[in-house]
Amino acid sequence: MLTHQNKEPRNPDRVVMLGGNGFFGKALTKLLKESSMETLPLSSADLDLTADDAVDKLKSTLREDDSLVIFSALTPDRGRGIDTFMANLKMIENLCAYLAEQKPAHVIYFSSDAVYPLGSGPVNETSAAAPADLYGAMHRSRELMLQQTLGDQLCILRPTLVYGADDSHNSYGPNRFRRQAAKEGKIVIGGEGEETRDHIYIDDIAEITKLVLENRSTGMLNVAGGSSTDFGTVARLVAAQFDGNVEVCPTPRKMPATHRSFDITALHRAFPGYVFTPLETGLKKAHEGSL
């Protein structure tokens, strides 16, 4: 549930993005620039949050009137072990040390729906965050660290599976399907692809974040489209982008199928009338963007 701190939406003075050179950061930077917002995307090369001098660099870079968006994280493709977990916590430890001294006008933390266990019915913001792996535990720990530092002045966004042309990760889903189709002429799915997930297009992430920035919203929100689709259907939709030359190949199921769906009433309440990109449209855009 979000609370809008601005009575009327207005542009923030400047939006600083930590991890601004990644998939989410690039999409947001592009959208904000189109809206003539001042942006400062920072990559880990610009500001390494794990470094000893991170706090000093943050002090010299950030201003009090900044809106800060935190994308920085080592994602599972960079490792799922304890070392990755600890490095991720170190980033936020340094950031919290800075935030304890100087609070920007607005802070948005990009968490993940990995904080929720699978198979627990429609997820909403009151669902128990009981992560099943270190990646989910990392995000939940970071949320708590930031909440302890910033209190109710923080906005936490928990996006579900995001797809788009510029995604550098290769996790199971639309992005991998597209690459596999282009490279191998086939898409391999687990079982018949029965698992259902909520897939959202990267532009929706950027649009929702822009709304959060304009309203200076605080609280917590799941960013999902509210409609779940099975991987088999997603694979066939991706395959259809390739003029019928791509085969979807089921494999014997090794694990029971799991499902995830979202009750996005809180998002409807926060941003009435926001319409998500339909899956078919988003997949088409992702395909065209990758050509």
Binding site: P122, G226, S227, D263, I264, T265, H268, G273, V275, P278
Partner: peptide, 17 residues
């Protein structure tokens, strides 16, 4: 609580888009 918002969800899913 979930059912209370049935109409709101329906409006978003089938009307506003």
């Amino acid at each position: 609580g979930y059912r209370k918002n049935w109409v709101l969800r329906l409006l978003h899913q089938h009307v506003f888009n």
